[in-house]
Write a protein that binds this DNA or RNA. Structure first.
Length: 269
DNA sequence: ATGCTAACCTGCGCGC
DNA sequence: TGCGCGCAGGTTAGCA
């Protein structure tokens, strides 16, 4: 479900209900997520959330005692609901606040996680992350330098969180289409000039998707339960065999690193 | 260091 | 209707 725009949409949605609120109870119904939900998460009880923010695809709840690290995996969502709303199937974790609201994690596939750390910057999941794609440090020279001698294809390269965070399977295909780059091209063979186009495309696609409230393919909903609308603007993702919006040739679907890639072999060289 | 694969799960749509 | 198969928005561990 969630790539960077969906996580950003989620964080913005929950923040007004969670920031500066005191946690009165943490309930874990199913601790078997990607990693077990740690018992130390209970240290959150009694804490007041200082802020809610996003790093990569992690939603972070910062408190004086430590930070909650939440990842939504493939199928997770975070919702704000009233305390008397009964949990449903796959509602694994609740964080209840003294304002009567509950932050509730639902994740059918359980690829997500809820972790607790006292030193976020040293956490293994956070430590080695690349730059934020919407930040000023994510530039063409950065990507160009990082990619020299790399033999992996460009699509897999930009989906590598050690290179740049937040570019998932949808927006990788969309960005490469926008920049006219064939996803099979080796990262190390791409010129600085073409990386200029790619960096611009990544920033543009992600920003537009955030503006649209994310992409809802199947089940993404924001903190209020509403879908996103970016799927209406997808150029290639999920459009196998349909005509390219530019040249009318059929969009191709291939597999790279065990993931589907969509592209136009005419417009992307 | 880099690149590739399997693995972790549930649910849904499709062909038969 | 039911069953088996393939596929799905992520990311890490482990191995060559």
């Amino acid at each position: 479900m969630p790539e960077l725009p969906e996580v950003e949409t989620t964080c913005r949605g929950i923040s007004p209900h969670v920031s500066h609120q005191k946690v009165i109870k943490v309930t874990v119904r199913q601790p078997k997520l990607r990693w077990p939900v740690p018992i130390e998460l209970q240290q959150l009880e009694g804490q007041t959330i200082k802020r809610v923010y996003r790093r990569a695809k992690y939603c972070l709840l910062e408190s004086p005692a430590g930070t909650v690290i939440i990842h939504l995996g493939m199928s997770g969502n975070l919702r704000i609901c009233d305390r008397d709303i009964e949990p449903e199937k796959h509602d694994h974790v609740d964080i209840q606040f003294d304002n009567g609201k509950i932050l509730r994690l639902q994740d059918p596939r359980r690829f997500g996680c809820v972790l607790w750390t006292q030193k976020l910057s040293q956490h293994p999941l956070i430590r080695d992350l690349g730059p934020e794609p919407l930040s000023e440090v994510f530039t063409a020279p950065f990507l160009y330098k990082k990619s020299r001698s790399r033999k992996v294809n460009i699509k897999t390269f930009i989906m590598n969180a050690k290179v740049v965070v937040g570019v998932g399977n949808i927006y990788a295909s969309e960005s490469l289409f926008m920049s006219g780059i064939n996803p099979k091209t080796l990262a190390g063979k791409i010129s600085l000039k073409r990386y200029e186009k790619l960096v611009f495309a990544i920033k543009t696609v992600l920003s537009l998707a955030i503006d649209q409230g994310g992409t809802t393919l199947k089940d993404f909903v924001n903190a209020s339960g509403q879908p996103g609308y970016f799927q209406q603007k997808l150029s290639v993702y999920g459009r196998a065999d349909q005509p390219c919006l530019t040249c009318k040739q059929p969009i191709r679907q291939i597999t790279q690193a065990q993931r589907s890639t969509y592209y136009c072999s005419t417009c992307q060289k």
